[in-house]
Simulated scan of single mutants.
Amino acid sequence: MTATLADLRRVAERFWPAETAEAWDRVGLVTGRDDAPLRRVLLAVDAVGATVDEAIEWGAGALLTHHPLLLRGVHTVAEDTAKGALLARLIRGDCALLAAHTNADSPEQGVSDVLAVRLGLSASEPIVPGLEPAAGLGRVGELDGELSLAAFAERVAAALPATAGGVRVAGDPERLVRRVAVLGGAGDSLLDHPAVRGADVYVTSDLRHHPAQESLEHALVVGGPALVDVSHWASESLWLEGAADRLAEALPGVEFRVSTIRTDPWTFAVGGDRPLSW
């Protein structure tokens, strides 16, 4: 029996229930019809021109992304707008679009959980517990042994796909770290959380100047973590492979593939510097 889009929606809802998404989020089906036959599904972090083209050229019946295309309100889907043009291409290509965003961030085998595993954290637990015992925002856990901050940053870089921005670090390169907090995607909202303040290092993305600076100054007075800032796209891309495997097991006969296109928006960097102590 041929699978349909409804089957994919049913399984996605079981893995990443929409009710667990943040109130501001927009997850689930964006475009597509439930009775459409489904033979191929492409997974990506972002719905952009390159991943939409990849899905259609591959003959995918659905593109499943982490980031919602219509997260913020739009007032037109005219094809002279970026989002309108993408939606038109998907509809003409008979390719549905679904998103699993904050509902995929928090569960076991979700974005932050996968990041914690890839960095070698043991006995990790949510920074902000969710409704389920092992679910919640972020993760905090222990490395098997102490590493210098510089060595740990190298581990982070090796675990993530390469991007133009690489890995930025704030802290003494020789500082020893063992307890690690992580949050895939933008994470400066948790800089003041006790679980983050109690870690030796915090790994996340999109750290802004003032919150990061204030966190470091606070650490000089009462202690706190070093900061490791990574690509937003890279930190969330690690989740896709496991998600594709789980979906393939639940929907035999449907082919799942993870896009290899880098949708990190930055293409190159110049003028970087390194600490003189390295």
Rank of each mutant, 00 (worst) to 15 (best):
69 L>P: 00
232 H>R: 10
36 A>M: 15
37 P>A: 14
81 T>H: 01
214 E>S: 05
254 V>M: 14
192 D>W: 12
173 P>T: 10
106 S>M: 13
164 A>S: 13
165 G>S: 10
3 A>H: 13
6 A>S: 14
263 T>F: 01
222 V>M: 12
85 A>K: 14
188 D>N: 12
112 S>Y: 04
240 L>I: 10
258 V>C: 14
92 R>D: 12
1 M>E: 15
74 V>H: 12
186 A>I: 06
167 V>C: 04
195 A>P: 02
129 P>N: 07
248 A>M: 11
174 E>H: 09
85 A>I: 00
241 E>S: 15
243 A>T: 11
149 L>M: 06
232 H>A: 06
10 R>D: 07
3 A>R: 14
65 T>G: 01
154 E>H: 09
73 G>A: 13
260 T>W: 00
55 A>F: 02
171 G>F: 03
14 R>T: 10
54 E>K: 05
43 L>Y: 09
106 S>D: 13
20 T>Q: 14
215 S>A: 15
160 L>M: 09
265 P>I: 05
28 G>M: 07
231 S>R: 09
128 V>P: 03
66 H>P: 08
227 L>M: 08
21 A>K: 04
110 G>T: 04
139 R>V: 01
141 G>L: 07
7 D>S: 08
53 D>L: 03
150 A>L: 14
97 L>E: 04
41 V>G: 05
133 P>M: 10
49 G>L: 01
168 R>N: 09
165 G>L: 13
137 L>A: 14
235 S>G: 14
27 V>H: 06
258 V>H: 09
77 V>F: 14
64 L>G: 09
271 G>M: 02
37 P>N: 08
107 P>A: 11
235 S>E: 10
269 A>C: 14
253 G>F: 04
80 D>Q: 12
237 S>Q: 14
27 V>W: 03
173 P>Y: 05
10 R>H: 11
62 A>Q: 07
238 L>S: 12
146 E>H: 09
225 P>I: 05
198 G>Q: 06
75 H>V: 03
162 A>L: 11
134 A>E: 12
77 V>Q: 13
247 L>W: 13
122 S>T: 13
94 D>G: 04
112 S>E: 02
73 G>Q: 09
80 D>L: 03
99 A>E: 00
179 R>G: 01
44 A>E: 10
93 G>C: 11
182 V>Y: 04
108 E>C: 05
242 G>N: 10
266 W>F: 15
149 L>A: 10
127 I>L: 06
196 V>R: 12
191 L>R: 07
12 A>D: 01
186 A>N: 04
133 P>Q: 11
72 R>S: 11
196 V>A: 08
182 V>N: 04
141 G>C: 07
61 G>V: 03
210 H>D: 11
17 P>R: 06
186 A>M: 08
227 L>N: 07
22 E>F: 01
6 A>R: 13
262 R>L: 13
86 L>S: 01
157 A>E: 15
263 T>Y: 03
81 T>Q: 02
150 A>W: 05
261 I>G: 02
7 D>A: 13
13 E>K: 07
227 L>Q: 02
244 A>L: 02
70 L>M: 12
193 H>P: 05
251 L>D: 08
274 R>W: 12
104 A>T: 01
105 D>V: 08
48 V>M: 07
34 D>V: 04
118 R>S: 14
222 V>D: 15
49 G>Q: 07
84 G>C: 08
208 R>W: 02
